[in-house]
């Protein structure tokens, strides 16, 4: 008998007669949050990321201010006004490593946890593009922010590779002291467009 059949057989033997299970889902699936953008910004800041909350009309100028003259990775499908003034970086791993940063949009953002989710869709780059550069500038539209984790999970497409980002990379492996900046981008800057 192959391993597959043997393992399945052992499982069937082991659970024979075990009771059926009801899953209670009494938790909050849509927590009430008055100011999604405000809470999101506050929670992202808690991770020691840089956050700006700006009216939509001011966003392009703010981005230009941040990327002007810098070698930035510009993902396919990024709105052109989100990278004006930047010098486009190449796509090889070495070029990504040498770039000054990457600018992206996102798929969903979660207010309660201060999380941004990328799904490699238009303007979000490949997984490598948002990982290797040391600086990540992410533009979050107000309409992309949901209150809690359940709403985010419902909005996301599991067939796409997803990256959930909550602050810059960090470790607490040394005496449980949190240190920001390990292998992922050491600086995360977020612009919330309202």
């Amino acid at each position: 008998m192959g391993a597959r059949e043997e393992i399945l057989g052992r499982i069937r033997q082991a659970v024979r007669g075990a009771p059926e299970v009801e899953i209670p889902r009494g938790y909050r699936t849509a927590p009430p949050v008055d100011d999604l953008a405000g809470l999101f910004a506050e929670r992202v800041r808690d991770y020691r990321a840089i956050v700006h909350v700006l009216p939509a009309a001011e966003v392009p100028a703010a981005i230009t201010e941040l990327v002007r003259g810098r070698r930035m990775v510009i993902p396919d499908g990024l709105p052109p006004e989100w990278s004006e003034g930047a010098e486009p970086a190449g796509g090889s791993l070495a070029e990504l490593d040498a770039a000054d940063g990457v600018v992206t949009g996102c798929a969903v953002a979660i207010a309660e946890t201060g999380t941004i989710v990328l799904d490699t869709g238009p303007g979000q780059g490949t997984r490598a593009q948002t990982l290797v550069p040391d600086y990540h500038l992410c533009v979050v539209l107000a309409g992309q922010i949901v209150a809690g984790v359940p709403e985010a999970v419902a909005r996301l497409d599991p067939s796409r590779p997803l990256t959930w980002i909550s602050g810059p990379s960090a470790t607490s492996d040394i005496e449980l002291n949190r240190v920001e900046g390990v292998h992922g981008p050491r600086t995360l800057e977020v612009i919330v467009s309202t």
Partner: peptide, 11 residues
Amino acid sequence: ERMNPYTSTWT
């Protein structure tokens, strides 16, 4: 933490 810095999912 409210959320760990990175969660990756792939299919």
